[in-house]
């Protein structure tokens, strides 16, 4: 068996792959931002004093956590999208040169919007749960200390509990953002021209299935590794340890004292 890599890495297939990478990066970024925003909303509801808000957040969580993402994306694209006002849909369908990335990757399309929203919503539910678990892992004494100093409830959360919860939850949360990137491959089902879509296009164009999927896999791997490294670089615990190492002489002293 011989491999023909030029059938994948030259001519039209190469351009398709480039477009695919740009699209995957764009959808990952857009959906991540959306997911972060929705996480804040979900957390605000979850931590609310109002029972109704908490109930709403937990139903949304259960709904999106326990149904397949592919079904959710299909629902947003084929179902919910059509509930938008006619004018909006017409406007979205127009050409928007200002919202087009290099490689002719349009951002304002029903496919992109439905994918970003679907991925964002799905991921937000998981991220919010990770952070909630991180909050629960903060000892209750931290809250009591802050209350006894006269902090307002939102300040207790903002300055004492959340920083620790985020540090606790950081690694699992990074895992969720990486998942989001990988799950963006499902958007191929509604015709978003990301990496997986392009790989399949190459396969039907010149039947170089093995080569095309190998290259596609490597592209995901590369994006995943870079993204993972970059995000872990900002790990608050890692930074704390770094700061610790800078104060090395005093530490050994403290260790002696213990």
């Amino acid at each position: 068996m011989t491999f023909d890599w030029t059938g994948v890495l030259s001519g039209a297939p190469l351009i398709w792959l480039q477009t695919g990478v740009v699209t995957t990066l764009a959808i990952t970024l857009a959906a991540s931002l959306l997911a972060s925003l929705l996480t804040l909303v979900l957390l605000a509801l979850r931590l609310s004093e109002r029972k109704l808000a908490r109930a709403l957040a937990s139903s949304v969580t259960e709904l999106f956590r326990n149904t397949p993402l592919l079904v959710q994306i299909l629902f947003w694209y084929f179902g919910a999208y059509n509930l938008l006002p006619r004018d909006w849909r017409d406007w979205i369908n127009n050409d928007h040169p200002w919202a087009t990335l290099p490689g002719n990757v349009p951002l304002l399309t029903p496919e992109f919007l439905a994918s970003a929203w679907g991925l964002g919503m799905f991921s937000a539910v998981f991220i919010a749960e990770e952070i909630r678990a991180g909050l629960q892992a903060v000892p209750s004494g931290q809250r009591e200390a802050a209350i006894s100093q006269g902090f307002a409830p939102w300040q207790v959360l903002r300055f004492v509990l959340l920083p620790q919860a985020l540090a606790n939850a950081y690694q699992p949360v990074v895992g969720q953002y990486l998942n989001l990137m990988k799950l963006s491959s499902l958007a191929t089902a509604i015709g978003l021209a990301e990496i997986t879509y392009q790989v399949r296009q190459i396969e039907s164009y010149n039947s170089h299935a093995l080569e095309a999927f190998a290259v596609g896999t490597l592209l995901y791997l590369a994006i995943g590794l870079i993204m993972g490294r970059a995000l872990l670089h900002f790990d608050p615990k890692r930074r704390r340890i770094k700061k610790l190492l800078h104060a090395a002489p005093v530490i050994s002293e403290a260790a002696d004292a213990v």
Binding site: P139, S148, Q149, G150, F151, Q155, V160, A167
Partner: peptide, 30 residues
């Protein structure tokens, strides 16, 4: 509460802050 100091059995220092920041946090925010 800000007029009454409370010292806990388990210290309850803010784990994510240095000793100095533990002291200044409430001075700043409260």
């Amino acid at each position: 509460r800000s007029d009454i100091g409370f010292v806990f059995q388990q210290f309850n220092l803010y784990a994510h802050l240095t000793a100095h920041e533990n002291i200044t946090l409430a001075l700043d925010k409260v």
